[in-house]
């Protein structure tokens, strides 16, 4: 049954009548047209659907929208224009971190989370932080370099 849910999406308060059990992933894609959030597996294994929930990285495929009542949700659409966001995009392009691109928005959310959490992340910290974001194209190395570069504010 539909209920009224209020939460903050990319900095804006929103309110919707919706079934609270609907996955946040589907709400973002279908009801909010935020298609940067991808479904890669639907079981919390791949990280393509990563979003920030109250500043922490989570899998939006495992979250019923009813549980984000009052919380702040951020997707790539809300991050890409920010200072950090631009730096991450730049670093990903510069370091060769992008191939097919399907995991990349999720990686970008991960990168943003890392940049907020660590001032100077080591490559081990980056690898651990991104261990739930799978990529089948790159072998990860260039993604790790990109996050390092973004954290340093430019090319490493």
């Amino acid at each position: 049954m539909k209920k009224k849910i209020d939460f903050v999406l990319n900095g804006e308060k929103i309110s919707m009548e919706i079934d609270p059990l609907k996955r946040l992933l589907d709400v973002l894609r279908e009801d909010c047209s935020l298609t940067s959030v991808k479904e890669g597996c639907g079981e919390g294994e791949c990280g393509a659907c990563s979003v920030l929930l109250d500043g922490e990285i989570v899998n939006s495929c495992l979250i019923p929208v009813g549980t984000v009542e009052g919380a702040a949700v951020e997707t790539v659409e809300g991050i890409r224009e920010s200072e950090n966001g631009k730096r991450i995009i730049d670093a990903f392009a510069e370091e060769g971190a992008v191939q097919c691109g399907f995991c990349t928005p999720g990686m970008m959310v991960g990168a943003e989370w890392i940049l907020r959490k660590y001032e100077n992340p080591t490559s081990d910290e980056i690898r651990t932080a991104l261990s739930g974001n799978l990529c089948r194209c790159t072998g990860y190395d260039m993604i790790i370099s990109a996050v390092e570069a973004a954290a340093k504010g430019g090319r490493k």
Partner: peptide, 29 residues
């Protein structure tokens, strides 16, 4: 009882809406 839901959402995954066998109570908050 539904806390984080990381197991429940996988076990009850279904098209359109998760297919729980019973009603659900959120308590993680």
């Amino acid at each position: 009882p539904f806390a984080g839901g990381t197991d429940l959402m996988v076990q009850n995954a279904a098209p359109v809406l998760p297919g729980f066998k019973k009603d659900v109570v959120f308590l993680g908050h």
